[in-house]
Design a protein around this nucleic acid. Structure first.
Length: 180
DNA sequence: GCAGTGATCATA
DNA sequence: ATGATCACTGCC
């Protein structure tokens, strides 16, 4: 493999615990290919959502039409609308049935999960698609090394409904220097 | 601090 | 059919 090549992340990358996938997605390029050609940005913020035991995770509310993708194989986009306004981009993690996913919350200059999907033109037409298949949206490892001291861990945003235990869990990962 | 916004899901 | 909820943003 080329040291500075474009390595498209394969499904195996995602078939690991969500917190690990969330950590390792920092520094990875998110590539969007639309009519105007491909653009890419570095991932600077993520959050892990674990399986049904994680009360902040959609999968804790059971298997429904919306959460069906979470219960399936890893490495699929899970895209849903929140507050009737904002698309959220996730990628599924773990083994089938783990029902875990990672929310992509920040990209280079773009801060905020809804502003990110708006900027990239992401909606539910991508829901359920395999990231590794490069269906207009995928992840690439370009060899950008993120050292442990560059990573800030904190509580997840906007999940107070899950109660103190799951609200306080440090499942948010931020690339230092990307947040003001 | 909180309004806007509408799909989703539980309840009936 | 109805009502509560909501992994956010932007404005006050």
């Amino acid at each position: 493999m080329a040291r500075h090549g474009r390595r498209v992340l394969r499904t195996d990358f995602f078939r690991r615990p969500a917190a690990l996938v969330a950590r390792e997605l920092l520094g990875i390029e998110l590539v969007r290919n639309q009519d105007g050609g491909p653009t890419s940005s570095i991932i600077t913020e993520t959050e892990a959502y674990e399986g049904p035991h994680d009360l902040a995770s959609h999968s804790s509310r059971g298997r429904t039409r919306r959460t069906e993708v979470m219960f399936g194989p890893a490495g699929r986009f899970y895209v849903y609308l929140v507050y009737g306004l904002h698309w959220m981009l996730n990628v599924t993690a773990g083994e089938p049935g783990d029902a875990a996913a990672v929310l992509i919350r920040g990209l280079g200059a773009v801060s905020g999960p809804a502003r990110l999907t708006t900027a990239l033109g992401i909606d539910d037409s991508l829901n359920g698609l395999e990231a590794a298949k490069q269906n207009g949206l995928w992840f690439e490892d370009r060899g950008h090394v993120v050292a442990p001291r560059q990573v800030l861990r904190s509580a997840r945003i906007g999940v107070e409904y899950a109660g103190p235990k799951w609200t306080r869990k440090k499942l948010r990962f931020v690339l230092k220097g990307s947040v003001r």
